[in-house]
Design a protein around this nucleic acid. Structure first.
Lengths: 201, 201
DNA sequence: GTCTATACGTCGATAGAC
DNA sequence: GTCTATCGACGTATAGAC
């Protein structure tokens, strides 16, 4: 409602439309991420997603089978991109340097994919949900990469709890930045997190 | 479904029932917090809340007017308790000691009120919601207390971003603890967060 | 002040044409 | 493979008895 430009009855929702069957799945996934990040899963209707993606509701069910399956696809795709980026960033590094690289990369991922980041914080500690298994993978894989970096340099600390602390600090600061202080340069944010988190290494 | 003990068809949802009109609001709020923390706002029906609280649906609308208003009451009550506790903990302290006290107190609040903590992380970065104003207060008040402590001891760092980092580290670690490693003693968790966050002070 | 019954709207999912 | 039209289920909110 609020996002529909006045005066145009039915504005085209996506760029070109000669691409039947090509990027339909991608359009749907993108629309779902952005809507669900803002309103949550249950508050986002399949009709809304279809309208935002510029496809018919039937196409969503043809491609994904159910609303839940669509959301699981969203999570799987997002966590894949995130963990790949994190692993690449920490490649060959250890200890303090690894932590620094991971924090920087996670901040960059939050900046480039803010909707998925929001969705992650919102769902990561929920229990009674259908896609709990999928979201558990996000948690374990992402935090696990941080835990590995912690374990090699500070064996005196608990890896998983310390990883949670660094992960949480970075994620929350990144979202605070994007949602409420978007004018700030990325370097400021990076430095604030590292100054808080890195001095122990 | 999963939480209903087998063998008992319809277990009484609250302790005594001679208390008509006494703690009705409190029963409803408690039920709402615990259900919404797990399933989210939209996925939790007023019928579910009424059943869990042991009252009729009509009583909820009599006491709160709408589902949204009920949720706002939940937030207001929770943030009141949280900020009161945090302010008391930091009273008379400055710099490193203040941060240490705040982290400890926040961890304790997460432990004693885990459902509200979950609910907070889940909603804090959402935008397109009716209670956005209420949740903005949570954010600003809670993080503001941390920001004050940072500002007095480390004027070289940005207070709000650094506060977000400490707040995020504490909250995420606390929830990781409760949700996935509840067997750990509180002291371990406290030390993991402080070792990560406090060395800069 | 709390309960039961119900009106009204919305949502997930399906059927069938193209 | 994508569309439109429609069904059945469920959820919020209200009305009125007690």
């Amino acid at each position: 409602m609020t996002s529909t430009p006045p005066g145009s009855a039915a504005p085209p929702r996506r760029s070109g439309r000669g691409d039947r069957g090509a990027g339909t799945r991608a359009f749907i996934v993108d629309a779902a991420v952005s809507l669900i990040a803002d309103r949550g899963f249950s508050a986002t209707s399949v009709d809304d997603i279809a309208a935002e993606a510029g496809v018919a509701k039937g196409s969503i069910y043809y491609n994904f089978g159910s609303k839940t399956a669509l959301f699981e696809a969203v999570i799987v795709e997002g966590v894949g991109r995130l963990t790949t980026a994190l692993r690449a960033a920490a490649e060959g590094l250890e200890g303090r340097a690894a932590i620094e690289a991971l924090v920087s990369e996670l901040l960059d991922q939050v900046r480039t994919h803010p909707d998925f980041a929001k969705l992650m914080v919102a769902e990561i500690f929920r229990t009674g949900r259908d896609w709990q298994e999928s979201i558990r993978l996000v948690r374990e894989e992402s935090m696990g990469i941080f835990a590995d970096a912690v374990a090699t340099s500070r064996p005196d600390l608990d890896p998983s709890l310390t990883a949670a602390a660094i992960f949480g600090a970075t994620l929350v600061t990144g979202l605070e930045w994007l949602a409420f202080q978007p004018h700030r340069p990325a370097a400021d944010v990076r430095q604030s997190v590292l100054a808080t988190v890195l001095d122990a290494y």
